[in-house]
Design a protein around this nucleic acid. Sequence first.
DNA 1: TCTGGGGTCCTAGGACCC
DNA 2: TCTGGGGTCCTAGGACCC
Length: 420
Amino acid sequence: MFALVDCNNFYASCERVFQPQLKNKPIVVLSNNDGCVIARSNEAKKLGVPMGAPAFEYKELFDKQGIHVFSSNYALYGDMSNRVMTLLQEFAPEIEVYSIDEAFLRFEGMLPNFDFQDYGNIIRKVVTKGTGIPISIGMAPTKALSKVANKIAKKFAEKTGGMYLIDTEEKRIKALRWTKVEDVWGIGYRHAKRLQALSIYTAYDFTQQPEDWVRKQMSVVGLRLQNELKGIPCLEMDTVQPKKNIATTRSFDFNQTEFYYLRERVATFAVTCAEKLRAQKSCCNAIMIFVHTNGHRKDLPQYSRNVVLPLPYPTNSSITLTQFAAKGLEMIFKQGYAYKKAGVIVMDITPETVQQINLFENNPIKHRPLMETIDRINKSIGVKKVKLASQDVGRTWKMRQEKLSPRYTTQINEIIKVKA
DNA sequence: TCTGGGGTCCTAGGACCC
DNA sequence: TCTGGGGTCCTAGGACCC
C-alpha cells in the first residue's frame, strides 16, 4: 500500500501558521521578484485568481477583494517542509520526499486486517497538530492510484475528512471514472489534448486502451502509468539521490543591457551552484551559461543563447566555476540587447570522492580547504557573508520582495513574539 | 514597468567503434 | 537489383512533474 501525503495550499498555509488571523481569508504567494502567483488559498481560488497570474495584472483584484499578498519566503517554507517530512517518517518504513509539499509513504508488513483508513486519520492529526499545516492523504496499491485517491480526498474534504483509501476493485473503477484524463499524474497538456481528440476523457477510458497502442503513442512512460492505474505497481519508491543537474537562474527586476551587470549575476549564480554541489558532496564536469531577453516584450529585439563548457577536471570550487561562467558569458553576450534573465546550470555531476586528475592541468583540488572554510564561516555567521570579489560585494542588486514575511523558524531575531 | 525556478526521463538520430 | 552486422555514446527535443 502506498500513500501520497500532500500539504494543502502549502505556501499559503505556512504564512497562515504564523498569522492565524488569516484563517479563512484569501491569501496568495508570489514568485521571485513578486512576478506572478504561485500559491493560493482556497478562498483566493474561489475569487478567481488563476495559477501563474501576473501580479501586476491582478493588483486591482487583490486590493478590491482584500486578498493578502506575500512574497516567497523559502527559508520559511523549506523549514516547515522539513518539519512535516520529519513527522511523516515515523509512520512508514519507507518515505520518498517527492516535492517541497508532497511525500509518498510505502507500507509493508502490516497485518491483513490493518485499518489504513484509521491510520491515515491519525497521520493527518499528528502532522496538523505538530506543524499547523493541513494535509490530505490518498492511499492505494500503486503510486499513481494514490495520487488519484489524494485528489478525491482533497476535492471531497468534508465527506472524506481529507483521507481517501482505494482498497477495492469497485472503488478503483469508480475513482478512475471520476478522474478526468487531463488530471492524471503523468498526463500533461499535450497528451491530454491528443487523448481527448480520440474520445478518451477519463482515467478509466485510458486504462481501456490497448497496451501496444499506449506504448507507441506515449512510450514506456505511458505504459507504466496505464499499468499503475490498473492496480499493477510499476513505479518504485525513489530514495534521495544526488541531483544530476543543478541550476541557479533568475529573472531580473528590470532589463539589463550592460555586460558588467550580467557578469556579476552569472558569477553569483555560479557560486550558488558551487555551494549546492558542495552541500551534496559532488563535483561537476561541465557548466552551462544562458542569457535571454524578455519574450513578452514583442516590441524589443529578441536574443537567446546558451553555451556548455566542459571543465578540465571535476570541480565544486566557487572560484573555478566563476571563471568558467565569466568565460561562457563572454562567448554568448551580445551588445545592444535588453537582457531579462540569465542562469548557470552545472552538469555531468560526479561524486566528490571520485577525482580524475587531468594530466595537463594544475592541482584541481587546491581550492578545497578554502571552500570548506568559506562554507563554515557562512554557516556560522549568516549566509553569503563571505563572497568573491566578482560578486555583488557592494550589494548593488536585490530581488524585489515587497511583501516578505519574517523567517519565523530559522532566524532568532525574526522569531514570533507573544505578548503577555 | 511588471509575466518563476527548479527538476526528471525517454526517444530518435548522428557519429563513432570493430 | 544490389550496397554487413553488430555495438556505444552523445545530443537535441519532447514530454512530464512540483
